[in-house]
């Protein structure tokens, strides 16, 4: 009976040939959102700078850290900014889910994962921009790296890898939570997790159990590895592998979970 139908729309394309085009269309959508809300984007970039200044000058004086505190703090702030990216991802995904537009996407002949890929591409771009701004401000404040160009790029790579893991945790949590109210609850929990790290203070200066928890925090692994690569205080040799392994392990769990959950929207 399908013979009775002539396709009035475009011919059905070969599978896969439009995946990249669809991903790019969805990424462009997020970029168009930025263009329409420059203030929001700006606030997102300035917020970590504000934290850096606050901890560097307001709270930072008394920390027991060997060497200069700025050299310890900047890598910590870079890692913290990547961790906090989780909130932005969650919020954006939840907003999309609660609008009818996701239904239109899902009823169209587009590549299945393009919605999620567009989200990740845009978030990664924004995080990269955040790193550039924070590094530039740190530099202006007198912070210097001592590890060479390759190590510098390696550090940036580790930070983005960590952000990528956070991104997929964010997508998964947003898909599980669904409603904006639950997202708020999770957003609040991101704060203690972000602060229960070695971003601002060395775990050695903390009570035993707290220090252990802080050292196990994946964000601490990334921060320590980045400190090592930047050649600043607080770095420990051998942490680069941990900073690679942790995000990969998180991705191995949450990326498939998120993709599966997205597919289950039709269950």
């Amino acid at each position: 009976m399908s013979a009775a139908y002539t396709t009035r729309g475009p011919a059905r394309p070969a599978r896969g040939s439009y995946v990249l085009a669809d991903c790019w269309t969805m990424t462009r959508r997020e970029l168009a959102h930025w263009a329409r809300q420059p203030v929001q984007v700006l606030v997102g970039l300035v917020f970590p700078v504000m934290l850096l200044l606050m901890f560097g000058y307001l709270v930072g004086g008394g920390r027991e850290v060997t060497g200069d505190y700025l050299g310890y703090l900047v890598p910590g702030m870079l890692a913290l900014t990547m961790a906090f990216g989780l909130e932005g991802t969650m919020l954006a995904v939840t907003q999309d889910l609660n609008k009818g537009v996701i239904d239109r996407f899902r009823s169209m002949p587009m590549a299945n994962g393009a919605v999620l890929v567009g989200r990740s591409a845009a978030d990664m771009l924004q995080s990269a921009a955040g790193l550039v701004v924070l590094i530039a401000v740190g530099h202006a404040l007198g912070w210097r790296t001592h590890g060479g160009a390759a190590a510098f790029l390696g550090a940036v790579g580790l930070l983005l890898l960590f952000r990528f893991a956070m991104l997929w945790i964010g997508i998964h949590l947003a898909l599980v939570a669904g409603k904006p109210e639950l997202v708020q609850a999770v957003q609040i929990l991101v704060w203690p997790l972000g602060f229960l790290s070695n971003a601002f203070a060395a775990p050695e200066a903390m009570p035993g159990w707290l220090g252990t928890a802080v050292q196990w925090n994946p964000m601490s692994q990334t921060a320590t590895a980045v400190r090592e690569l930047f050649g600043g205080p607080g770095g420990e040799p051998g942490h680069v592998w941990a900073a690679v392994a942790w995000p990969l392990a998180l991705l191995a769990v949450f990326l498939p979970l998120a993709v599966r959950r997205f597919g289950r929207l039709s269950a």
């Binding site: 959508r29 168009a32 959102h33 329409r36 809300q37 609008k99 009818g100 537009v101 239904d103 239109r104």
Partner: peptide, 11 residues
């Protein structure tokens, strides 16, 4: 055409 507008409201 769903019950709620299936559009990107920011664009």
């Amino acid at each position: 055409l769903g019950q709620h507008a299936a559009l990107d409201e920011q664009l």
